[in-house]
Design a protein around this nucleic acid. Structure first.
Lengths: 260, 260
DNA sequence: CGATCTGTTGACTGTTATCAACTCCGGTGG
DNA sequence: CCACCGGAGTTGATAACAGTCAACAGATCG
């Protein structure tokens, strides 16, 4: 599945959202892009910037944060196959800071490509819109997470969501997922203090719900975690895998240049 | 300004978001609608419903809630001129419960109208999209409100936002706004307990920032409230009033029927 | 004029933040 | 190879903010 850097995860993501045909997904093969690598906690987009390209995440995690660096609340997390900044397609001015959570690989795609794609394929246009709505639904759910759950269930719910979204693009097989982020990052996403995040994770470990060794997080009791979090994936607006269309073949991306 | 039930507030709202011409706004005059009145805490859309019309709020406030009735966290508040459920334009299945905050008057507009409007006017199509993005930005800001402010500044920030959005459609003149909602509603929007909301409001009163008598809330020290809340209206994506286009003339809505 | 909802107050409890210290680890440079 | 360093994880003590419970006052409405 790991054919270098490819757009297959974006294709998976789009296919899970709406009814797109194989022909639609094949249009993605023409996507022009610049591949960029970022190191942990590096700023990708700064508050107030104007952006004329989209950040398509290929590997790792990205976060939208209130402030730069390690500080500031995380308001959103992107997983591979996500377009981290779809809003800039319609309003280039960036609100908030887009920051890598651990090392990340991003494909920078000119807005023009998506606008032309929308013009050529009504189905793709609609699916991109559904992507925006899905983001919206995820945000609303984060609000509920912050507003009505305590630290333990909050962390549990976030992990359920991330895992489900990863699985939607073929990652987190066997409930084993990369965790290049720190406990403080997790705390920033759940709006709890790093110290309390640590205690919370210990509690989850003690309940034999998960293991977190090094840069790998293993969920040992998925059903238990789902029950604890009260997690219902319906809000994500995605369908079970392998029902949607898949592109006939997607080669490696046309890598124009690879800046640090 | 109160020419019966008109769509002028929607026009104001749209004009504040993007560059729409007077001709674009005139298209709204053809909007077919059914006027509906709702009483406080009445459910307008139930979780799981399929909706094929949009709820354009004419008077009062609407809330999206986690649960029906008075319970459940509020994830979003609509003010007059808002389309409460723009998501249903693209995904009819409703997530959450749309519930009136105090008595409310709503124009029910078939989805078809907005789809045809989008097809006829690219500017309107774009502006409707900007409306969606504005909702998104407001949500993100609520997350920050819940995650990084204490009860006092949380309530203050919410009141600043509501006031600004009301002023954007010509309401809340002189910082005097209708408050048909209860303290418990406010608590549900800030994710604090009703008791604590009460104490918080008393604190705001004690600081001479606002008065809340009966169903009218008066902000007596706007600058002070803004300072306390750390409120910056930039995220709303709206421009100062009276710069955008205005429709030539908008008569009363074609009122088809007025159910209770 | 009673019933119900809303607002108000006090006492108590509990979750979580904060502060501080310490360990462990990976990297870096001497 | 070792000493050092910074970041990350861990632990305990304390404090603050907010939730809960309970009771009552005032308003509103049938």
């Amino acid at each position: 599945m790991q054919t270098g850097f490819s757009f297959s995860k974006l294709a998976d993501h789009l296919a899970s959202l709406g009814d797109v045909t194989v022909e639609d997904l094949d249009l993605l093969a023409e996507m022009p892009s610049t591949i960029a690598h970022f190191s942990s906690h590096q700023t990708i987009l700064r508050h107030g910037d104007d952006s004329h390209q989209c950040c398509l995440l290929l590997q790792g995690y990205l976060s939208w944060r209130n402030a730069e660096g390690r500080d500031g609340q995380i308001t959103s997390i992107s997983v591979p196959g996500d377009i981290a900044d779809p809003q800039t397609l319609y309003r280039p001015r960036v609100h908030g800071n887009l920051i890598a959570l651990g090392p990340a690989v991003v494909a920078l795609v000119p807005h023009r490509f998506f606008h032309e794609l929308s013009a050529r394929s009504p189905a793709m246009s609609r699916t991109l819109l559904l992507m925006l709505l899905s983001d919206h639904a995820i945000q609303r759910n984060w609000m509920i997470n912050l507003g009505s759950r305590d630290a333990l269930t909050r962390v549990a719910h976030l992990l359920c969501e991330i895992t489900t979204r990863l699985q939607n693009v073929g990652l987190a097989k066997d409930f084993r997922l990369a965790s290049p982020f720190t406990q403080s990052d997790l705390a920033a996403a759940c709006s709890i203090s790093p110290v309390h995040a640590n205690r919370t994770i210990q509690e989850l470990r003690r309940c034999n719900l998960l293991q977190w060794h090094g840069k790998t997080l293993t969920i040992s009791d998925w059903q238990g975690l789902v029950r604890l979090a009260g997690f219902d994936p319906a809000y994500l607006g995605i369908r079970p895998r392998d029902q949607g269309a898949r592109p006939t073949q997607l080669g490696p991306a046309k890598c124009v240049v690879a800046p640090a």
